[in-house]
Design a protein around this nucleic acid. Sequence first.
DNA 1: AGAGCAACTTGACACTGTCAAGTCAGCTGA
DNA 2: TCAGCTGACTTGACAGTGTCAAGTTGCTCT
Lengths: 205, 205
Amino acid sequence: MTDDQNSKPHHHGDLRSALIQAGIALLSEGGKDSLTLRKCAARAGVSHAAPAHHFDGISGLRGAIAQEGFRLFRLSMLNASGTENQSELDHLKAICSGYLNFAIDNPALFDLIFSSAPMEGLESNLKSGTAFSYDVLRKACAPFVQPGQDPMIIETQVWSLIHGYTHLYMASRFGPVDLSHQARGPFDQVVSLLDALVVSNATKA
Amino acid sequence: MTDDQNSKPHHHGDLRSALIQAGIALLSEGGKDSLTLRKCAARAGVSHAAPAHHFDGISGLRGAIAQEGFRLFRLSMLNASGTENQSELDHLKAICSGYLNFAIDNPALFDLIFSSAPMEGLESNLKSGTAFSYDVLRKACAPFVQPGQDPMIIETQVWSLIHGYTHLYMASRFGPVDLSHQARGPFDQVVSLLDALVVSNATKA
DNA sequence: AGAGCAACTTGACACTGTCAAGTCAGCTGA
DNA sequence: TCAGCTGACTTGACAGTGTCAAGTTGCTCT
Protein backbone atom coordinates (compact mmCIF):
# COMPACT_ATOMS: atom_id res chain seq x y z
CA MET A 1 0.00 0.00 0.00
CA THR A 2 1.74 3.14 -1.13
CA ASP A 3 0.68 5.45 1.65
CA ASP A 4 3.03 7.96 0.10
CA GLN A 5 0.17 9.73 -1.62
CA ASN A 6 -1.73 9.90 1.62
CA SER A 7 1.25 11.05 3.56
CA LYS A 8 -0.07 14.57 3.76
CA PRO A 9 0.99 15.43 7.26
CA HIS A 10 -1.33 16.93 9.77
CA HIS A 11 1.15 19.73 10.00
CA HIS A 12 1.31 21.64 6.80
CA GLY A 13 4.93 22.56 6.96
CA ASP A 14 4.73 26.22 6.17
CA LEU A 15 1.08 27.01 6.15
CA ARG A 16 1.61 30.62 7.07
CA SER A 17 3.54 31.57 3.99
CA ALA A 18 1.35 29.30 1.87
CA LEU A 19 -1.67 31.31 3.00
CA ILE A 20 0.07 34.58 2.22
CA GLN A 21 0.98 33.38 -1.26
CA ALA A 22 -2.58 32.13 -1.81
CA GLY A 23 -3.90 35.50 -0.74
CA ILE A 24 -1.65 37.38 -3.14
CA ALA A 25 -2.73 35.06 -5.95
CA LEU A 26 -6.39 35.61 -5.11
CA LEU A 27 -5.93 39.37 -5.05
CA SER A 28 -4.17 39.22 -8.38
CA GLU A 29 -6.81 37.02 -9.99
CA GLY A 30 -10.06 38.33 -8.65
CA GLY A 31 -9.45 41.71 -7.09
CA LYS A 32 -9.75 42.76 -3.51
CA ASP A 33 -13.14 41.14 -2.89
CA SER A 34 -11.68 37.74 -3.70
CA LEU A 35 -9.38 37.82 -0.70
CA THR A 36 -11.12 35.55 1.75
CA LEU A 37 -9.93 33.49 4.67
CA ARG A 38 -11.85 30.46 3.47
CA LYS A 39 -10.62 30.72 -0.10
CA CYS A 40 -7.03 31.08 1.07
CA ALA A 41 -7.48 28.05 3.26
CA ALA A 42 -9.00 26.02 0.44
CA ARG A 43 -6.20 27.01 -1.92
CA ALA A 44 -3.63 25.94 0.65
CA GLY A 45 -5.50 22.64 1.11
CA VAL A 46 -6.48 23.12 4.73
CA SER A 47 -9.78 23.55 6.54
CA HIS A 48 -11.54 26.87 6.71
CA ALA A 49 -10.54 27.57 10.29
CA ALA A 50 -6.88 26.67 9.96
CA PRO A 51 -5.69 30.24 9.21
CA ALA A 52 -6.85 31.35 12.65
CA HIS A 53 -3.81 29.64 14.15
CA HIS A 54 -1.43 31.76 12.10
CA PHE A 55 -3.17 35.13 11.78
CA ASP A 56 -5.43 37.23 13.89
CA GLY A 57 -8.45 36.82 11.62
CA ILE A 58 -8.85 38.33 8.20
CA SER A 59 -7.35 41.54 9.44
CA GLY A 60 -4.19 39.76 10.44
CA LEU A 61 -3.94 37.99 7.10
CA ARG A 62 -4.30 41.30 5.30
CA GLY A 63 -1.53 42.70 7.44
CA ALA A 64 0.78 39.82 6.64
CA ILE A 65 0.01 40.11 2.94
CA ALA A 66 0.69 43.83 3.13
CA GLN A 67 4.07 43.14 4.62
CA GLU A 68 4.97 40.82 1.76
CA GLY A 69 3.48 43.40 -0.60
CA PHE A 70 5.86 46.03 0.72
CA ARG A 71 8.74 43.74 -0.06
CA LEU A 72 7.57 43.26 -3.66
CA PHE A 73 6.87 46.96 -3.94
CA ARG A 74 10.38 47.77 -2.87
CA LEU A 75 11.79 45.28 -5.37
CA SER A 76 9.74 46.88 -8.14
CA MET A 77 11.17 50.29 -7.37
CA LEU A 78 14.72 48.98 -7.09
CA ASN A 79 14.30 47.09 -10.31
CA ALA A 80 13.24 50.25 -12.12
CA SER A 81 16.18 52.27 -10.90
CA GLY A 82 17.96 51.72 -14.20
CA THR A 83 21.60 51.94 -15.17
CA GLU A 84 24.36 53.40 -13.07
CA ASN A 85 25.36 56.06 -15.55
CA GLN A 86 22.37 58.29 -15.07
CA SER A 87 21.89 61.58 -13.33
CA GLU A 88 20.55 61.63 -9.83
CA LEU A 89 17.38 63.23 -11.13
CA ASP A 90 16.88 60.54 -13.75
CA HIS A 91 17.43 57.97 -11.04
CA LEU A 92 14.68 59.52 -8.95
CA LYS A 93 12.37 59.63 -11.96
CA ALA A 94 13.07 55.99 -12.71
CA ILE A 95 12.07 55.05 -9.21
CA CYS A 96 8.85 57.01 -9.56
CA SER A 97 8.21 55.04 -12.71
CA GLY A 98 8.67 51.83 -10.73
CA TYR A 99 6.17 53.14 -8.20
CA LEU A 100 3.53 53.52 -10.89
CA ASN A 101 4.43 50.26 -12.58
CA PHE A 102 3.95 48.28 -9.40
CA ALA A 103 0.48 49.72 -8.96
CA ILE A 104 -0.44 48.95 -12.56
CA ASP A 105 0.87 45.40 -12.33
CA ASN A 106 -0.59 44.70 -8.86
CA PRO A 107 -3.72 46.86 -8.49
CA ALA A 108 -5.33 45.03 -5.61
CA LEU A 109 -2.08 44.58 -3.73
CA PHE A 110 -1.25 48.25 -4.13
CA ASP A 111 -4.70 49.05 -2.84
CA LEU A 112 -4.21 46.81 0.17
CA ILE A 113 -0.79 48.20 0.99
CA PHE A 114 -2.05 51.76 1.07
CA SER A 115 -5.40 50.93 2.57
CA SER A 116 -6.44 53.02 5.52
CA ALA A 117 -8.11 49.99 7.07
CA PRO A 118 -6.37 48.90 10.23
CA MET A 119 -4.49 45.64 9.87
CA GLU A 120 -4.21 43.63 13.03
CA GLY A 121 -0.69 42.89 14.04
CA LEU A 122 0.74 45.33 11.57
CA GLU A 123 0.08 48.54 13.43
CA SER A 124 3.59 48.44 14.76
CA ASN A 125 5.02 46.91 11.63
CA LEU A 126 3.06 49.14 9.32
CA LYS A 127 5.28 52.11 9.78
CA SER A 128 8.36 49.95 9.56
CA GLY A 129 6.94 48.18 6.52
CA THR A 130 6.16 51.48 4.87
CA ALA A 131 9.52 52.86 5.90
CA PHE A 132 11.21 49.82 4.45
CA SER A 133 9.85 50.59 0.98
CA TYR A 134 9.98 54.31 1.55
CA ASP A 135 13.69 53.91 2.10
CA VAL A 136 14.24 53.54 -1.65
CA LEU A 137 12.53 56.84 -2.32
CA ARG A 138 14.35 58.48 0.55
CA LYS A 139 17.77 57.51 -0.76
CA ALA A 140 16.89 58.80 -4.21
CA CYS A 141 15.83 62.11 -2.72
CA ALA A 142 18.94 62.52 -0.62
CA PRO A 143 21.13 64.18 -3.27
CA PHE A 144 18.70 67.08 -3.54
CA VAL A 145 18.53 67.88 0.14
CA GLN A 146 20.36 71.11 0.88
CA PRO A 147 22.69 71.32 3.88
CA GLY A 148 20.78 72.06 7.04
CA GLN A 149 17.47 71.22 5.37
CA ASP A 150 15.06 68.66 6.81
CA PRO A 151 15.11 65.78 4.30
CA MET A 152 11.49 65.07 5.12
CA ILE A 153 10.36 68.14 3.22
CA ILE A 154 11.56 67.03 -0.19
CA GLU A 155 10.69 63.42 0.53
CA THR A 156 7.13 64.31 1.41
CA GLN A 157 6.76 66.51 -1.64
CA VAL A 158 8.07 63.84 -4.00
CA TRP A 159 6.15 61.05 -2.35
CA SER A 160 2.89 62.99 -2.36
CA LEU A 161 3.28 63.87 -6.01
CA ILE A 162 4.02 60.40 -7.31
CA HIS A 163 1.59 58.68 -4.98
CA GLY A 164 -1.21 61.06 -5.86
CA TYR A 165 -0.79 60.52 -9.56
CA THR A 166 -0.56 56.78 -9.12
CA HIS A 167 -3.63 56.56 -6.91
CA LEU A 168 -5.78 58.78 -9.12
CA TYR A 169 -4.56 56.87 -12.14
CA MET A 170 -5.55 53.55 -10.57
CA ALA A 171 -8.98 54.94 -9.73
CA SER A 172 -9.40 55.93 -13.39
CA ARG A 173 -9.92 59.51 -12.40
CA PHE A 174 -7.99 61.03 -15.28
CA GLY A 175 -10.85 60.98 -17.74
CA PRO A 176 -10.14 59.14 -20.97
CA VAL A 177 -6.68 57.95 -19.94
CA ASP A 178 -6.85 54.19 -20.12
CA LEU A 179 -4.85 51.88 -17.91
CA SER A 180 -1.90 50.91 -20.00
CA HIS A 181 1.81 51.35 -19.91
CA GLN A 182 1.59 53.44 -23.04
CA ALA A 183 -0.26 56.44 -21.70
CA ARG A 184 2.71 57.94 -19.96
CA GLY A 185 2.30 61.45 -21.32
CA PRO A 186 0.50 62.85 -18.28
CA PHE A 187 2.77 60.87 -15.99
CA ASP A 188 5.88 62.38 -17.55
CA GLN A 189 4.40 65.82 -17.13
CA VAL A 190 3.80 65.18 -13.46
CA VAL A 191 7.29 63.81 -13.03
CA SER A 192 8.67 66.86 -14.80
CA LEU A 193 7.48 68.87 -11.83
CA LEU A 194 10.43 67.32 -10.04
CA ASP A 195 12.69 69.51 -12.18
CA ALA A 196 11.02 72.61 -10.79
CA LEU A 197 11.20 71.16 -7.30
CA VAL A 198 14.92 70.54 -7.50
CA VAL A 199 15.67 73.92 -9.02
CA SER A 200 13.52 75.76 -6.53
CA ASN A 201 15.10 73.88 -3.70
CA ALA A 202 18.66 74.53 -4.86
CA THR A 203 18.13 78.27 -5.14
CA LYS A 204 16.60 78.29 -1.70
CA ALA A 205 19.82 77.17 -0.07
CA MET B 1 -59.20 54.19 16.39
CA THR B 2 -56.34 56.48 15.67
CA ASP B 3 -54.81 54.65 12.80
CA ASP B 4 -52.63 57.68 12.38
CA GLN B 5 -49.75 55.99 14.11
CA ASN B 6 -50.13 53.01 11.87
CA SER B 7 -50.46 55.11 8.76
CA LYS B 8 -46.95 54.29 7.62
CA PRO B 9 -47.60 53.93 3.93
CA HIS B 10 -46.47 50.94 2.01
CA HIS B 11 -44.66 53.40 -0.20
CA HIS B 12 -41.88 55.04 1.68
CA GLY B 13 -42.01 58.37 -0.04
CA ASP B 14 -38.37 58.89 -0.78
CA LEU B 15 -36.69 55.66 0.18
CA ARG B 16 -33.87 56.14 -2.27
CA SER B 17 -32.47 59.26 -0.68
CA ALA B 18 -33.25 57.92 2.79
CA LEU B 19 -31.03 54.94 2.03
CA ILE B 20 -28.26 57.17 0.76
CA GLN B 21 -28.39 59.29 3.89
CA ALA B 22 -28.45 56.17 6.06
CA GLY B 23 -25.41 54.89 4.21
CA ILE B 24 -23.47 58.11 4.74
CA ALA B 25 -24.36 58.04 8.42
CA LEU B 26 -23.19 54.44 8.72
CA LEU B 27 -19.92 55.24 6.99
CA SER B 28 -19.40 58.16 9.29
CA GLU B 29 -20.18 56.20 12.44
CA GLY B 30 -18.58 52.85 11.86
CA GLY B 31 -16.20 53.13 8.95
CA LYS B 32 -16.35 51.51 5.58
CA ASP B 33 -17.16 48.02 6.84
CA SER B 34 -20.35 49.30 8.44
CA LEU B 35 -21.88 50.16 5.08
CA THR B 36 -24.31 47.32 4.54
CA LEU B 37 -27.45 46.97 2.47
CA ARG B 38 -29.30 45.43 5.39
CA LYS B 39 -28.20 48.04 7.89
CA CYS B 40 -29.18 50.85 5.55
CA ALA B 41 -32.57 49.22 5.07
CA ALA B 42 -33.05 48.80 8.82
CA ARG B 43 -32.09 52.40 9.47
CA ALA B 44 -34.58 53.55 6.86
CA GLY B 45 -37.23 51.35 8.45
CA VAL B 46 -37.77 49.00 5.54
CA SER B 47 -37.16 45.33 4.95
CA HIS B 48 -33.75 44.00 4.06
CA ALA B 49 -34.56 43.50 0.39
CA ALA B 50 -36.20 46.86 -0.23
CA PRO B 51 -33.04 48.61 -1.45
CA ALA B 52 -32.90 46.26 -4.43
CA HIS B 53 -35.75 48.23 -6.01
CA HIS B 54 -33.72 51.45 -5.97
CA PHE B 55 -30.13 50.36 -6.50
CA ASP B 56 -28.33 47.67 -8.38
CA GLY B 57 -27.17 45.83 -5.28
CA ILE B 58 -24.54 47.05 -2.86
CA SER B 59 -22.43 48.24 -5.73
CA GLY B 60 -25.22 50.51 -6.90
CA LEU B 61 -25.74 51.91 -3.43
CA ARG B 62 -22.05 52.66 -3.14
CA GLY B 63 -22.21 54.45 -6.45
CA ALA B 64 -25.14 56.58 -5.35
CA ILE B 65 -23.44 57.41 -2.07
CA ALA B 66 -20.30 58.35 -3.97
CA GLN B 67 -22.31 60.75 -6.10
CA GLU B 68 -23.67 62.47 -3.03
CA GLY B 69 -20.18 62.36 -1.57
CA PHE B 70 -18.84 64.26 -4.57
CA ARG B 71 -21.41 66.96 -3.92
CA LEU B 72 -20.34 67.30 -0.28
CA PHE B 73 -16.70 67.19 -1.29
CA ARG B 74 -17.25 70.04 -3.72
CA LEU B 75 -19.02 72.04 -1.06
CA SER B 76 -16.14 71.50 1.33
CA MET B 77 -13.67 72.85 -1.18
CA LEU B 78 -15.86 75.81 -2.08
CA ASN B 79 -16.39 76.54 1.58
CA ALA B 80 -12.66 76.67 2.17
CA SER B 81 -12.00 79.06 -0.68
CA GLY B 82 -11.87 81.97 1.75
CA THR B 83 -12.27 85.66 1.30
CA GLU B 84 -12.38 87.48 -2.00
CA ASN B 85 -9.39 89.70 -1.30
CA GLN B 86 -6.75 87.04 -1.64
CA SER B 87 -4.24 86.26 -4.30
CA GLU B 88 -5.00 83.60 -6.85
CA LEU B 89 -2.30 81.44 -5.33
CA ASP B 90 -3.73 81.75 -1.84
CA HIS B 91 -7.11 80.87 -3.29
CA LEU B 92 -5.68 77.69 -4.78
CA LYS B 93 -3.97 76.84 -1.52
CA ALA B 94 -7.21 77.38 0.40
CA ILE B 95 -8.97 74.93 -1.87
CA CYS B 96 -6.24 72.38 -1.30
CA SER B 97 -6.81 72.88 2.40
CA GLY B 98 -10.50 72.13 1.87
CA TYR B 99 -9.49 68.97 0.02
CA LEU B 100 -7.57 67.71 3.04
CA ASN B 101 -10.20 68.86 5.51
CA PHE B 102 -12.92 66.91 3.77
CA ALA B 103 -10.86 63.75 3.97
CA ILE B 104 -10.13 64.30 7.66
CA ASP B 105 -13.76 64.98 8.47
CA ASN B 106 -15.17 62.18 6.30
CA PRO B 107 -12.54 59.45 6.13
CA ALA B 108 -14.75 56.59 4.97
CA LEU B 109 -16.62 58.74 2.47
CA PHE B 110 -13.36 60.05 1.03
CA ASP B 111 -12.18 56.47 0.76
CA LEU B 112 -15.35 55.44 -1.05
CA ILE B 113 -15.23 58.37 -3.46
CA PHE B 114 -11.70 57.60 -4.57
CA SER B 115 -12.09 53.85 -4.38
CA SER B 116 -10.94 51.95 -7.40
CA ALA B 117 -13.77 49.48 -6.90
CA PRO B 118 -16.26 49.63 -9.73
CA MET B 119 -19.58 51.12 -8.71
CA GLU B 120 -22.55 49.87 -10.69
CA GLY B 121 -24.45 52.58 -12.44
CA LEU B 122 -21.75 55.14 -11.81
CA GLU B 123 -19.28 54.14 -14.48
CA SER B 124 -20.77 56.77 -16.75
CA ASN B 125 -21.45 59.18 -13.92
CA LEU B 126 -18.14 58.60 -12.22
CA LYS B 127 -16.18 60.74 -14.57
CA SER B 128 -18.88 63.39 -14.51
CA GLY B 129 -19.08 63.14 -10.72
CA THR B 130 -15.34 63.46 -10.42
CA ALA B 131 -15.31 66.24 -12.98
CA PHE B 132 -18.02 68.02 -11.06
CA SER B 133 -15.82 68.29 -7.98
CA TYR B 134 -12.66 68.57 -10.01
CA ASP B 135 -14.20 71.67 -11.55
CA VAL B 136 -13.41 73.65 -8.40
CA LEU B 137 -9.75 72.73 -8.61
CA ARG B 138 -9.70 73.40 -12.32
CA LYS B 139 -11.04 76.93 -11.94
CA ALA B 140 -8.49 77.70 -9.24
CA CYS B 141 -5.70 76.48 -11.51
CA ALA B 142 -6.85 78.50 -14.50
CA PRO B 143 -5.02 81.75 -13.64
CA PHE B 144 -1.69 79.97 -13.81
CA VAL B 145 -2.13 78.43 -17.21
CA GLN B 146 0.08 80.13 -19.77
CA PRO B 147 -1.36 81.03 -23.17
CA GLY B 148 -1.24 78.09 -25.53
CA GLN B 149 -0.58 75.67 -22.67
CA ASP B 150 -2.74 72.64 -22.04
CA PRO B 151 -4.54 73.38 -18.72
CA MET B 152 -4.50 69.69 -17.94
CA ILE B 153 -0.79 69.76 -17.21
CA ILE B 154 -0.99 72.10 -14.26
CA GLU B 155 -4.26 70.63 -13.10
CA THR B 156 -2.83 67.13 -13.02
CA GLN B 157 0.28 68.29 -11.21
CA VAL B 158 -1.69 70.15 -8.54
CA TRP B 159 -4.28 67.42 -8.17
CA SER B 160 -1.66 64.68 -7.87
CA LEU B 161 0.26 66.62 -5.25
CA ILE B 162 -2.66 67.45 -2.98
CA HIS B 163 -4.37 64.10 -3.45
CA GLY B 164 -1.19 62.19 -2.74
CA TYR B 165 -0.55 64.03 0.48
CA THR B 166 -4.16 63.64 1.56
CA HIS B 167 -4.29 59.94 0.79
CA LEU B 168 -0.99 59.14 2.49
CA TYR B 169 -2.02 61.25 5.43
CA MET B 170 -5.29 59.36 5.78
CA ALA B 171 -3.45 56.05 5.64
CA SER B 172 -1.22 57.28 8.48
CA ARG B 173 1.84 56.77 6.39
CA PHE B 174 3.68 59.86 7.52
CA GLY B 175 5.22 58.26 10.56
CA PRO B 176 4.48 60.02 13.82
CA VAL B 177 2.15 62.60 12.30
CA ASP B 178 -1.14 62.13 14.08
CA LEU B 179 -4.49 62.73 12.44
CA SER B 180 -5.45 66.16 13.67
CA HIS B 181 -6.11 69.52 12.17
CA GLN B 182 -3.11 70.81 14.06
CA ALA B 183 -0.37 68.95 12.28
CA ARG B 184 -0.35 71.14 9.22
CA GLY B 185 3.37 71.73 9.08
CA PRO B 186 4.13 69.02 6.52
CA PHE B 187 0.98 69.91 4.64
CA ASP B 188 2.04 73.51 4.31
CA GLN B 189 5.41 72.40 3.04
CA VAL B 190 3.78 70.29 0.38
CA VAL B 191 1.48 73.13 -0.59
CA SER B 192 4.48 75.43 -0.79
CA LEU B 193 5.62 73.37 -3.74
CA LEU B 194 2.86 75.14 -5.63
CA ASP B 195 4.96 78.30 -5.43
CA ALA B 196 7.74 76.58 -7.32
CA LEU B 197 5.23 75.14 -9.77
CA VAL B 198 3.76 78.53 -10.58
CA VAL B 199 7.13 80.23 -10.92
CA SER B 200 8.53 77.47 -13.06
CA ASN B 201 5.49 77.52 -15.24
CA ALA B 202 5.51 81.29 -15.69
CA THR B 203 9.13 81.36 -16.82
CA LYS B 204 8.40 78.58 -19.26
CA ALA B 205 6.02 80.72 -21.29
C1' DA C 1 5.67 4.76 27.16
C1' DG C 2 3.02 8.43 28.44
C1' DA C 3 1.99 13.44 28.91
C1' DG C 4 1.65 17.65 26.87
C1' DC C 5 1.07 20.59 23.19
C1' DA C 6 0.66 22.80 18.86
C1' DA C 7 -1.61 22.21 14.36
C1' DC C 8 -5.46 21.28 12.30
C1' DT C 9 -10.62 19.70 11.72
C1' DT C 10 -15.47 19.82 12.50
C1' DG C 11 -19.52 22.02 13.49
C1' DA C 12 -22.11 25.79 14.63
C1' DC C 13 -23.56 30.73 14.71
C1' DA C 14 -24.66 35.42 13.14
C1' DC C 15 -24.25 38.28 9.40
C1' DT C 16 -23.91 39.46 4.48
C1' DG C 17 -25.77 39.98 -0.61
C1' DT C 18 -28.99 38.13 -3.74
C1' DC C 19 -32.88 35.85 -5.64
C1' DA C 20 -37.90 34.16 -6.03
C1' DA C 21 -42.36 34.55 -4.62
C1' DG C 22 -45.91 36.84 -2.27
C1' DT C 23 -48.58 41.08 -0.49
C1' DC C 24 -50.31 45.50 -0.66
C1' DA C 25 -51.61 50.34 -2.12
C1' DG C 26 -52.90 53.32 -5.52
C1' DC C 27 -53.81 54.23 -10.27
C1' DT C 28 -55.90 53.21 -15.04
C1' DG C 29 -59.41 52.42 -17.97
C1' DA C 30 -63.81 50.62 -19.14
C1' DT D 1 -67.76 52.11 -9.75
C1' DC D 2 -64.75 48.62 -9.87
C1' DA D 3 -61.66 44.93 -11.96
C1' DG D 4 -57.15 44.64 -13.00
C1' DC D 5 -52.53 46.20 -13.39
C1' DT D 6 -48.20 47.98 -11.87
C1' DG D 7 -44.72 49.36 -8.85
C1' DA D 8 -43.15 49.33 -3.92
C1' DC D 9 -42.26 46.62 -0.45
C1' DT D 10 -42.13 42.05 2.48
C1' DT D 11 -41.05 37.34 3.45
C1' DG D 12 -38.37 33.49 3.08
C1' DA D 13 -34.66 31.08 1.42
C1' DC D 14 -29.78 30.18 -0.07
C1' DA D 15 -24.75 30.29 -0.46
C1' DG D 16 -20.80 32.56 1.20
C1' DT D 17 -18.31 35.03 4.89
C1' DG D 18 -15.65 35.59 9.66
C1' DT D 19 -15.39 33.75 14.11
C1' DC D 20 -15.84 30.86 18.03
C1' DA D 21 -15.94 26.26 20.77
C1' DA D 22 -14.88 21.68 20.94
C1' DG D 23 -12.72 17.78 19.21
C1' DT D 24 -8.82 15.09 16.83
C1' DT D 25 -4.25 14.15 15.36
C1' DG D 26 0.51 13.64 15.44
C1' DC D 27 4.93 15.32 17.04
C1' DT D 28 8.17 16.08 20.94
C1' DC D 29 10.04 15.88 25.32
C1' DT D 30 10.97 13.59 29.55
